[in-house]
Amino acid sequence: MINTLMEMFSYTFLVRAVVVGLLVSLCAALLGVSLVLKRYSMIGDGLSHVGFGTLAIATAMNAAPLTVSIPIVILAAFFLLRISENSKIKGDAAIALISSSSLAIGVTIISLTTGMNTDVCNYMFGSILAMSKSDVTLSIILAIAVLGLFILFYHKIFAVTFDENFAKATGVKTGLYNMLIAFLTAITIVLGMRMMGALLISSLIIFPALTSMRLCKKFKTVTICSAAVSVVCFFFGVVISYIKATPTGASVVLVNIAAFLLFWAARFIPWTQRKEALCCFIAERRKV
């Protein structure tokens, strides 16, 4: 096992991918808790499709993908947020419209310029080879910014997630914090999209939050647990994809599904037994 890991990390592109991936899955998990609880899960999905469209445009223009995608996806995030707050247009329908429109635009642009080739497949389902050195630097800076902002505004994000009306009534600028959540989500999605794939990135947001909600009962523990689950799942996903030569994005999602089922099943075991089992496990580990 350790030999495999050593071998894996002797490839610089894999180290880069894992570093960025871990940071992105951490950010996605933290934001995911709020998004899932606010019933905004679909926004993540919609944004990733917009991201696909912008990637296609960036390739056609021969520009750096991240610098083109990030501003457009942030704009789309604000727009989607506005739609879901406006009760006149049904939010889910609007998101579906935007998703499919950006997919259509993206596919058309790709087929007109480079032609339908492996690029399309890579955008859709992700590629571990996608990260260049400058991408990695930008990703690390942005991911740290997302983490920092999340920690600084953690209590505000909780209040806006739990009860927007109360927060608004007591003078908290809820619109601002909703925009902050949308802004951070947009950045996270663009960063993770090329590795995980436009169709799979939203799972990084939704799965860890839902998984930890099976067992945890406080907002703080849900947040911490979901961050941990996400990071662990990503790591195992990458390792499995390396050993079995499976697509990275899909492998990470599969590990996430497994974790979800595990947590869901663990709920049916009473807490005292769970604690005992955990203690036994740790004791045995010590002996080994």
Binding site: K156, F162, A167
Partner: peptide, 28 residues
């Protein structure tokens, strides 16, 4: 102004401890 709103559907299955909820009243 202290405000007690009507509960929303999303709150009914919200994972938060009572303490976390009470403390959020100090946010303003």
């Amino acid at each position: 102004i202290g405000y007690l709103p009507q509960q929303t559907a999303a709150q009914k299955d919200f994972p938060a401890s009572a303490y976390e909820v009470v403390l959020s009243g100090r946010l303003a």
